[in-house]
Design a protein around this nucleic acid. Structure first.
Lengths: 193, 193
DNA sequence: TCCGATTTTGTAGTCGACTGTCAAAGAAGA
DNA sequence: TCTTCTTTGACAGTCGACTACAAAATCGGA
């Protein structure tokens, strides 16, 4: 997608950034968002507090999962790639399954970690609300090629609701496979329709 | 519901409390949550800042909707009151409509005001997340009398998703009627099923 | 190996949320 | 009216998010 990450400088920068965010999310989960200070995050990530603010303008930004768009794009593409006559819910179900199985094990583990943080820590969830809202729009857009406008949006909302519900249940048993749970839930929705 | 609010003391206390919260919500809407200081709220409500903190331990609490459970209970009851052979989605649709039309104009306006705050201000949304999650459970429980377990949960999740979607759209046009939008969206979902 | 550009860090300071305490003002009851 | 209890307000202070800035470390290229 991007340039092949040229210089050492840029690589180091990226590493620093992700390190800071990972430590932040870990600490948020361990001791709560409010109870975690930026100073503690800086210490954990072995950088100066001012460096944290350089990468993340506000504490809240530490909780924003910035790669949701690429995921949403992947889902949109996968939706387009589904067979033409598939029932709508199954289109989304198949697309989501395709995207998840296409992830490398490392990517998938990282994704689960961050999704867990999002679902578990209210402040993180709030920080990502905008993204969820826009993903919902993308999903609806992707479906609009297959069904009339309003129906596409309703379906997208229903699928998002069922998906979030499945993930919420997953948080109570984090050792199960969320992709599996999601697939199963969408299967049930498909039966309902 | 409560005791008839005997003494002058208690009445005055209650009035102070609601005055503070109303001014807070108004200011949040006017200038944003972060940009509003507790001092400004105190000034608007004509009390001392320390008095604000006596009623609301944290700034966030100023925006916590403390009556969501009674609403969820009302919906559960309304679900039970729907005719036996109604299709599941229409049960929920009818129950929600019944609850909203049952509200007095004042109550309804207040509810809209607070729902708008919840959907618009991330911090408030975070503070109320737990309540939304539990409402989802209540909805599923209420439907379980009418359909097998897993289906009830899936349906509840789908309805919650569609409902949140409708409310999210409403925030972009706050002069429209959210209850109307919600009813319409559920009607479309009903058509899909 | 040295230079210029960039990144990192420390420091000093602002602002607002929140706490604790104590004295003043008001209400309830005798 | 006098006493007692509660609510309120003022004040002083802590803590953490965030800013501005200049010094120091680091990197890339010549």
């Amino acid at each position: 997608m991007d340039q092949p990450a040229t210089g050492l400088r840029e690589r180091k920068k990226a590493r620093t950034r992700t390190a800071i965010q990972q430590h932040a999310l870990r600490l948020f989960k361990e001791r709560g968002y409010q109870a975690t200070t930026v100073e503690q995050i800086a210490e954990a990530a072995e950088v100066a507090p001012s460096t944290v603010f350089r990468y993340f303008p506000t504490k809240e930004d530490l909780a924003v999962l910035d790669d949701y768009y690429s995921l949403a794009d992947a889902v949109s593409a996968a939706v387009a790639a589904q067979p033409p006559d598939t029932p709508p819910v199954d289109v989304l179900r198949g697309a989501l399954r395709a995207v998840f199985t296409g992830l490398s094990p490392d990517d998938r583990a990282a994704r689960y970690e961050r999704d867990l943080a999002m679902l578990t820590i209210p402040e993180v969830w709030a920080a990502n609300l905008g993204m969820v809202a826009r993903s919902r729009g993308l999903l609806a857009d992707a479906m609009r090629a297959r069904m009339p406008g309003p129906a596409a949006r309703i379906l997208a909302d229903a699928v998002v609701g069922v998906g979030l519900g499945a993930l919420l249940d997953w948080t109570r048993d984090p050792h199960s496979d969320p992709a599996e749970a999601l697939d199963q839930a969408l299967g049930r929705l498909s039966d309902l329709l």
